[in-house]
Structure formats: structure tokens, C-alpha cells
């Protein structure tokens, strides 16, 4: 009966980021979401619990107080309980800081676990560091970019995808994996799931309860909007539109 920890991040939905004055990022109309691939991590944790005939899934997230919404969202995806490490200073953390905070919280709050599951990368920074860093800080084996996973007899068996193919690996538990998007199809929570999520236990851990200093190492000197916009001429799917399309292709000099 496996105890699986699923790490997730509540992030800005990048689709709503606009380019503001002077190339600044305009977050004024953004919405938030659980990182795309973190949903796969949660789903996989839930699947492994159910396949193991019991056990539990504990979600852990580090973030600013407003990430509480994300905790509820995550709980509606089948987890049993959540640990929310919350502080106003936890808004723009570097991956090294997030990993250090997660490591301390896991060490102090979850005495026994079999697996830690993370997404292959967060939707906002996509640095793909927190998983492998966390494994090192916890001193457990690490398998990144997993497309298929099973647990048996105190070991994991995973297919990890690398440039030249797939490596089928085994490692003793507890271990950490980061998962690829095709490992499963994350559920879309229904009304009942959302209602039930409100009743699930959430442990909130405050900055003062932690002993680490969690200093950053790198400095973000600037974060500016990048412009991908083009002229955007829309044509109809009629004869005139097709003719204009092909004409534009010809004018571009790419085709004869």
C-alpha cells in the first residue's frame, strides 16, 4: 500500500500574459492553474495508490498564500490530503529554493513514503530542476522523464525517455520520479470532486516553522515580454482566399 507524495505548483496561465508598455510583462488579466505536467504527477500518484490497493497520496506545494486555491484544485484530483507551505516571500522562488523547502517539509512532516512524483517541469519556469534537486536533498534515487511506471516489492520499474530511445530502469524505494505528459490522462474534476476536496485535510506550514535559510543563488535581472506577434492577415476558405494564400506564398519567394 504505497504512500506517494505528489509535488505541484500553482502557476500563472501563460496564455493570458500580455506584452505591456516597454516590453514589460502584463499580468493584469491572468488566471492561475496547476502546472500542466504536475497534473500528470498527481494522476500517476493516485493511479499507483489505487493499483496498490490502498495507501495514500499526499500533495505538497510551496507558494504564496493565494496558492490556497491551487491546493483545493489539487485535492479535487484524487489526493487524500495536502501540505501547503505558504509565505508571502514564496512567490518567485528559484528552483533551488523550492527544492530546499520541499525537502525540509517532507523530512519533517512525512516520516514514511515510497515515492515522490513531480511533473517533468513547471509550466511557468520549466527549469526542470526541482525534481532531481529534491531527490538529491532527500538522498533518494532519481528517475526523470518517465513515460511508464509501476511499483512492486519495494522497487520501482520505469520507462524513461531519452534522446536515443527508452531506458527501462529499476530502483529501490523510496525514490523520486518526474513524469512526462503521456504517462496518463489527468482527470477533469467534477462537481462532486470539488465538493469533496473542501473536506480533505490540509496542513499549512508557515515560514517560521522551517529552519532552513533558503537563500537564492542566481539573480533574475529582468523578465521581459517576448514578441511573437506578426501581421495576422486572416483569409476566408473560399476561392479568393485560397488564391491569395498561394499568391502570398509565391511572393514570399519560398515557392516558384
Amino acid at each position: 500500500m504505497p504512500v506517494v507524495i505528489a509535488c505541484f505548483k500553482w502557476v500563472v496561465d501563460e496564455a493570458y500574459i500580455r506584452r505591456g508598455a516597454g516590453g514589460a510583462l502584463d499580468f493584469s488579466s491572468v488566471d492561475y492553474k496547476i502546472g500542466e505536467y504536475d497534473r500528470n504527477a498527481i494522476e500517476e500518484a493516485v493511479r499507483l495508490r489505487d493499483a496498490g490497493g490502498g495507501g495514500s497520496v499526499i500533495g505538497v506545494t510551496v507558494g504564496a498564500p493565494e496558492s490556497a486555491k491551487g491546493v483545493k484544485d489539487a485535492l479535487s484530483r484524487g489526493m487524500d490530503r495536502a501540505i501547503f507551505v505558504s509565505d508571502a516571500s514564496f512567490r518567485d522562488l528559484e528552483p533551488s529554493q523550492t527544492a530546499a523547502i520541499l525537502a525540509e517539509v517532507i523530512r519533517t512532516h512525512i516520516p514514511q513514503y515510497d515515492l515522490v512524483a513531480c511533473g517533468e517541469g513547471s509550466s511557468d519556469l520549466y527549469a526542470q530542476q526541482v525534481g532531481p534537486r529534491l531527490a538529491e536533498l532527500l538522498g533518494i534515487p532519481c528517475v526523470c522523464f518517465v513515460q511508464k511506471l509501476s511499483l512492486e516489492g519495494g522497487r520501482l520499474r520505469a520507462e524513461r525517455r531519452v534522446e536515443d530511445g527508452v531506458e527501462v530502469v529499476e530502483a529501490p524505494l523510496p525514490a523520486l520520479v518526474t513524469v512526462l505528459p503521456d504517462i496518463n490522462t489527468p482527470r477533469i474534476p467534477g462537481v462532486k470532486d470539488t465538493l469533496m476536496a473542501g473536506k480533505k485535510p490540509v496542513t499549512t506550514v508557515k515560514r517560521e516553522e522551517l529552519t532552513g535559510t533558503f537563500g537564492g543563488v542566481l539573480k533574475t535581472a529582468a523578465m521581459t515580454a517576448s514578441s511573437l506577434e506578426r501581421t495576422g492577415e486572416k483569409l476566408a476558405a473560399d476561392a479568393a482566399g485560397i488564391a491569395r494564400f498561394v499568391d502570398s506564398l509565391r511572393k514570399s519567394g519560398v515557392i516558384r
Partner: peptide, 8 residues
């Protein structure tokens, strides 16, 4: 941010 920003 998926390509929406450049981080220095």
C-alpha cells in the same frame, strides 16, 4: 512562461 517571456 512557455515562450511569452525572456528571463535574464
Amino acid at each position: 512562461y512557455g515562450g511569452a517571456a525572456i528571463q535574464k
